[in-house]
Each structure stands twice: as C-alpha cells, then as structure tokens.
Amino acid sequence: MTLFLLLGLVGVFVIIMLRKAIVLMQGNNNKLVRMLQHTKWYQQHWFGGGFLFIVNVVLFTGVGLVLHLITQLSIPFIHLLIMIGAVITSIVLWVSMNRGWQGSKKNRLKMGFLGSSFYMVLALYIVYKLITLEPSFPGDDTFMAFIGLLFGLIVAIVAFITCMIFTGLSYQNKSQ
C-alpha cells in the first residue's frame, strides 16, 4: 500500500509540473468553461470559491460512497482504479474552473483557497482523530488505524495543494 501511495504522490507531482500543458490542452471551447465564463455569480471570488468548495465536497462524498459500495465486490485493486479516475475527474474539473475564471489574479487566489479549504478542513479533522486516537477495547493495537489516518492526512494535504495550484495559481493563457 505504501508503494501505491508513493506512486500516487509521484504521479500528482508530475501532473503539477505539467500543469501548463494540461491547462492549455483544455481550450475555451469546453461547454463547462463557456458556461462558467458567462455566469456572473461565478466571477465573484466568494461565490466561485463556494462553488469550488461544493464541487470538492460532492467529488469527495461521491468517491467515498462508491468506494464503500465496492467493498462488497471481491474484485482486487478496483478501488485503485476508482481513485485514479477520481483524481483525473478532479483535475479536469479544476482546470475547467480555472479556464472559466475571468477575474483578477488576487481574486483567483482567494477563490482557489476558499474552494481548496475543504481539504484543509478534512486534514485538520484527521489530525484531530490522530490526536484523540484510543483503543476500541483493552489491548487493541491502534497502529493500523494510525497508518490509515496518516495516509488520509497525506492524501488530504496533497489534494489541497493540487486544487490550490490548479485553481488559484495555475497558468492562464490570455490569448485564447
């Protein structure tokens, strides 16, 4: 499992390094991009950030629900494919929201931080769970719970950074 986590971190790092090319691959002809560009409320950083926050909550909840439902299946490694699909979907949506933003760089940063804050709140909740981790019964070993929470913390922080980079700090080509 640690190998998969490390491979995922390396993959996300590569995606972040190639973000300019990824953002430019998705042109302004995308239906979602055009809709966001012409939506007046989205161009205000508070509403745009709130929308991004809600999108992140829906993505996280949806993936969590699907992962919970597939625990009933005995197909090995299908959860990894679902998580890879969730990362790709998240990045595509974040790039679309980046391309749809028409405001200033300062307000883009505010919008990105507000929308990404869901993952920071999630990371803070995981830190709280780590601090208050107690055995369920006398003699219970909490090591595996600690490892699971640590992996969750790493994923939440990486998701925050990636969302922030793609929505708040990302390359915007003004010529398109």
Rank of each mutant, 00 (worst) to 15 (best):
I157H: 12
S170P: 02
N30F: 07
G115H: 09
I70Y: 12
G100T: 08
D141F: 00
F4A: 15
S117K: 10
S136M: 13
V55I: 14
P135W: 11
S96N: 13
H38S: 12
A159D: 06
L93K: 08
F143P: 00
A156R: 14
I16W: 00
V57H: 12
V66G: 14
L124V: 06
V10G: 05
F113E: 00
F47Y: 11
V87Y: 09
D140Y: 10
Q44V: 02
I78F: 15
F137C: 08
H38N: 14
G49T: 12
G50H: 08
I131R: 14
F51C: 14
I88M: 12
G139V: 04
K40W: 04
G112K: 11
L69T: 02
F146I: 01
M164T: 06
K31D: 04
L122R: 04
G8I: 01
S104H: 09
S170N: 13
E134C: 03
I126A: 00
K106Q: 12
V92E: 11
Q26K: 14
L93S: 05
V12Y: 03
W94S: 04
L5A: 11
I165H: 03
F137L: 08
T89D: 01
V12K: 03
Y171I: 04
V58K: 13
L52A: 12
I16H: 02
S96Q: 15
S96K: 10
V127E: 03
V63H: 03
F60D: 07
L69E: 00
K105C: 03
K105Y: 05
V57Q: 14
W101F: 09
F146E: 01
S96L: 06
L59R: 07
S117Y: 01
L153A: 00
G152S: 11
L130M: 14
L150P: 00
L153K: 09
Y128N: 13
A159V: 03
M120H: 07
R99H: 08
H45A: 09
L69P: 00
F51A: 15
I75E: 02
V23L: 12
I147R: 10
L150I: 01
H38L: 07
F51T: 14
Q102P: 02
L149T: 01
V92H: 10
V158E: 02
Q102L: 12
W101T: 03
M83R: 04
L59V: 03
L130C: 05
T167K: 13
S90C: 07
K40P: 00
G112F: 07
L109G: 05
V14F: 05
G64V: 01
L9P: 02
I70W: 15
M83G: 12
M111R: 15
T132F: 13
Y125I: 02
F113K: 11
V66W: 01
I84N: 07
I78L: 15
T167F: 08
M25Y: 14
S90Q: 13
G100Y: 08
L69I: 09
T132Q: 15
K40R: 15
I126V: 09
M111V: 03
L80I: 05
I54S: 13
V155Q: 05
L6N: 08
T89R: 14
N107L: 09
L109R: 11
P135D: 05
D140C: 10
T71E: 00
L24P: 00
I91F: 13
I88W: 14
V121D: 09
P76F: 10
Q172A: 05
